[in-house]
Amino acid sequence: MKLVVLRGNSGAGKTTTAKALLRALGPTTLLLSQDTIRRVILQAPDHVGTPAIPLMQALIVWGQAQQFETILLEGILKKSVYGPMLADLKHHWQSQMITCYFELPFETTFNRNQTKSGAFDRATLASWWQADDLLGYEDLCFDQTASLETQVNQITIALTKA
């Protein structure tokens, strides 16, 4: 059983990559999206103490109990809010956790965001922006030159080695 964490700014490609991984890995994979959990299910703000943290942790435990081979957790997951939770996950999962960070320039993420339905304005995206929000134990980092195929292939290879 493996846990893959996909982190980065809005519009960086995390959700697209997670959905491609879900298709590639099949029905033994559970996809947990921070946006869905925090904004849709809980309608909770994104700050220290958000109820999204214990719910994400509970869903990961549930996924383990259901014996999913791979659990994908994707979202901005900024270090200032989710850092302790992610450190706890790393401690628990150790080498079975693959952490990926999407590090793209603001302009690239803004332009990508504008192609989405319900796109956010520049000021909103800028208020969320986290430059170099690295945890220090990332296994993979992707920039704007990494294609979706490359990202999926590199994560898939990392899964076989973990």
Rank of each mutant, 00 (worst) to 15 (best):
Val4Cys: 11
Arg7Pro: 00
Gly8Lys: 08
Ser10Leu: 01
Gly13Asn: 02
Thr17Gln: 01
Ala20Tyr: 02
Leu22Pro: 03
Arg23Cys: 06
Gly26Asn: 11
Pro27Ala: 11
Thr28Met: 07
Leu30Thr: 09
Arg38Cys: 06
Asp46Leu: 04
Asp46His: 09
Val48Thr: 13
Val48Ser: 11
Thr50Gln: 11
Pro51Glu: 10
Pro51Asp: 12
Ile53Met: 11
Leu55Ile: 13
Met56Ile: 15
Leu59Tyr: 10
Trp62Asp: 15
Gly63Pro: 09
Phe68Ser: 03
Glu69Ala: 13
Thr70Ile: 14
Leu73Glu: 08
Glu74Asn: 01
Leu77Asp: 04
Leu77Met: 07
Lys78Asn: 14
Lys79Ala: 13
Leu86Lys: 05
Ala87Pro: 02
Asp88Gln: 15
Leu89Asn: 07
His91Ser: 12
Gln94Asn: 14
Ile98Ser: 07
Glu107Ile: 06
Gln114Cys: 00
Lys116Thr: 08
Ser117Arg: 11
Ser117Val: 12
Gly118Asp: 11
Ala119Thr: 01
Ala123Asn: 13
Thr124Phe: 13
Leu125Asp: 06
Leu125Gln: 09
Ser127Gly: 12
Ser127Cys: 02
Ala131Glu: 15
Ala131Lys: 13
Asp133Leu: 06
Gly136Thr: 05
Glu138Thr: 02
Asp143Pro: 05
Asp143Arg: 05
Ala146Leu: 00
Ala146Phe: 07
Glu149Val: 06
Thr150Tyr: 11
Gln151Ser: 03
Gln154Ile: 05
Ile155Trp: 02
Ala158Pro: 06
